[in-house]
């Protein structure tokens, strides 16, 4: 009697979110995969027949270059964010508690501003008439004709600017829990500081590193606005192509096919992880656990 009452209560409070996400998240996502196998009619709607034609553009050298560029920029962003984020997390974790909080606020607050505004701010700085360009020309670091905007470098810079705080957060929360006496012990035993940093500190914050990789690499793969605003035709990423197919060409199956590729990029790594974990059976801390805090 009691068990059945709890069950109805559970169903009752779970139903709204479960149903909502089923209807507006899971079904639409499956729909993307389904529509990628449809044909398009001349009016930009979804046609009746099924075909693989939307995938035809994928078997193409320029698309391959685009995918490789997307992966390359995402990896570069992740590597740069980690190599800056880890020392920053280390420095912050070693400060006094009061300072730690203030520094954390200084890291977070700029990112409470609108995403577009932040990218726009970089557009002003990198503008040909902007002061950075003038300064770099003045100290003869770049020629007058060089452009700081609309290239891969600008996209990478703004990607790092956007995702660095998301890397610092999990790295810091892992470093904060790290026992720094271990480093002192290692030093007393004759280990050099670089060596103990690599051998003791980095493994100690591995959970933070895994989360940082996830929160930087995954969104970077799907980024659209950054290359759209500071990139040029030679620095487009997968996200731009999806938006182009949907809004410019109005070819929904093609847009869906590209999105399906992106979905696969998200489904395959966790699946591999799951298989590895199932075979190893040594799951202790999932990276998701850190993200949820």
């Amino acid at each position: 009697m009691k068990i059945s009452r709890i069950n109805t209560e559970e169903k009752l409070i779970t139903f709204p979110s479960f149903f909502w996400l089923l209807l507006f998240f899971l079904i639409p996502t499956l729909l993307v995969v389904l529509i990628s196998f449809c044909t398009a009619d001349p009016y930009g709607n979804i046609g009746k027949g099924f075909s693989l034609s939307a995938y035809s553009e994928i078997i193409n050298i320029s698309f391959l270059i685009l995918v490789l560029r997307t992966i390359k920029l995402s990896i570069f962003t992740t590597v740069i964010c980690l190599s800056i984020g880890i020392p920053v997390a280390y420095a912050m974790a070693r400060m006094e508690k009061r300072w730690q909080q203030n520094f954390m606020l200084l890291v977070i607050i700029p990112f409470w501003t609108n995403f577009l505004i932040r990218i726009y701010a970089w557009k002003i700085i990198l503008h040909p008439e902007g002061f950075l360009k003038q300064f770099l020309v003045f100290i003869k670091l770049v020629p007058e004709s060089a452009s700081l905007l609309y290239n891969e470098g600008a996209v990478l810079l703004v990607l790092v600017y956007t995702y660095l705080p998301f890397a610092i957060l999990p790295l810091y929360s892992a470093a904060e829990k790290f026992d720094f006496q271990l480093l002192e012990a290692a030093r007393d035993l004759g280990s050099s500081s670089i060596r103990s940093f690599i051998k003791i500190f980095l493994p100690g914050i591995s959970v933070g590193i895994v989360s940082a990789i996830m929160v930087v690499f995954i969104p970077a793969l799907g980024t659209y606005i950054i290359p759209d605003m500071v990139g040029g035709p030679n620095s487009e990423m997968l996200g731009n192509k999806i938006a182009q197919r949907v809004f410019t060409d109005r070819h929904l199956p093609k847009g869906s096919a590209l999105s399906t590729i992106l979905i696969l990029a998200f489904v395959i790594p966790p699946l591999i992880q799951l298989i590895i974990r199932k075979t190893k059976k040594t799951s202790k801390n999932s990276p998701m656990g850190v993200l949820s805090k």
């Binding site: 996400l21 089923l22 996200g239 949907v246 929904l252 992106l262």
Partner: peptide, 21 residues
Amino acid sequence: GLIWVPLVIPDILMGMSLLLF
């Protein structure tokens, strides 16, 4: 799982899927 996945997928996928829906 249903709660979690929307947090980690890129916005463009959610936008695209809702548009098609």
